[in-house]
Design a protein around this nucleic acid. Structure first.
Lengths: 180, 180
DNA sequence: GTATTAAACGGAAGATCGTTCCGTTTGTCA
DNA sequence: TGACAAACGGAACGATCTTCCGTTTAATAC
């Protein structure tokens, strides 16, 4: 790969991250191109569709979030590292207005994101949980996916109609259970 | 109001509901106009902005959901009516992909929707809850808003960063609490 | 250092969508 | 039945995403 191409890809990703954060993921391509100091054609050369750029930025931020786990572990007691990372993760999810909509848009560019999400964040959280459990700072046996989903559900629409149905049934059963 | 205007408003709302359900709320105006058998100008006469049409369709569906409570109450034992209505409500929320995004878009056309939502659905659910509680089919003292929010949270992004933060802290405290 | 070439670049042009505008049609009422 | 205000339809406008292609440039061989 040519050096200028590599430079431009990095510049576009960096610019897109900033523009998405300030204007939103619907920001015009021209705005991103201008912020990156390139033409729109250059962006489309590397990211054939707008969605590909959005997905790439997401992936980059997922990576950053996963990597934060290691540095937090190095700087804090396990329980504190876990708590701080959970907030870091919550912040990441909270700023991703439009992520949920994107995931449900049916656009193939986003299909691989959920898997990427789990493959990178699950191990990070699992390590944090195990460290904290070993130090007796939290209970053992907590499923990292449960936590990821619990926090994400604060920000993301249900992606599974059956699961939504089951949870509603559960709520109603819960109401029934305590009837005097 | 002229008869043709009334007819066209109804036709547009009905057509928009169908088109939104199949294509999504981002469906082109032209598609809605064609489905309703009118020109785009006619739609814009009654709904100055695209968002106004979307909001009107939402309101119509909220009305339908609220009215379903009465007919379910008439046909079933209170506990069953409550369960069925909760599923009806969950279905309504689940099909509203894009509602959450719209509510957070800052568009003034959507500002009154949350209030409309509560004013119509809260009384409906409250009646169902009270009937079921009177029949000893569920516990008493359940807040209808809690239930509406609990179910809606399965499908809607967090609208309050502080609340999200508090809930994450709660989760982490919960983990700490049972440490042996 | 220079010539060659394949890759990358930029931005104009094409396609699509929300919205506006205005000439035409139609319902209503005196 | 005539007049007119209201409503209608769809072409036109502006903005946006995406494509296309002539131009530029980095990498390589000599």
């Amino acid at each position: 790969m040519r050096a200028d191409a590599r430079r431009n890809i990095d510049g576009v990703l960096q610019a897109a991250k900033k523009v998405f954060a300030s204007i939103g993921v619907d920001a015009p391509m021209r705005a991103i191109a201008e912020a990156a100091g390139v033409g729109v054609g250059t962006i489309y050369r590397h990211f054939p569709q707008r969605a590909d750029l959005v997905a790439a930025v997401f992936r980059q931020e997922i990576d950053a979030c996963a990597q934060a786990a290691a540095s937090l572990s190095a700087q804090h007691v396990p329980g504190v590292a876990l708590a701080k990372w959970m907030q870091r993760y919550a912040d990441f999810i909270a700023t991703k207005r439009g992520l949920a909509t994107a995931l449900h848009s049916g656009n193939p560019a986003f299909e691989s994101l959920p898997a990427y999400f789990q493959q990178h964040l699950r191990p990070a959280l699992q390590t944090l949980l195990e460290s904290a459990a070993s130090a007796n700072e939290i209970r053992a046996g907590v499923d990292p996916d449960d936590l990821l989903h619990a926090v994400a559900s604060l920000c993301m629409p249900a992606r599974d109609e059956d699961r939504a149905r089951r949870m509603v049934d559960l709520l109603v059963d819960g109401l029934r259970y305590s009837a005097r």
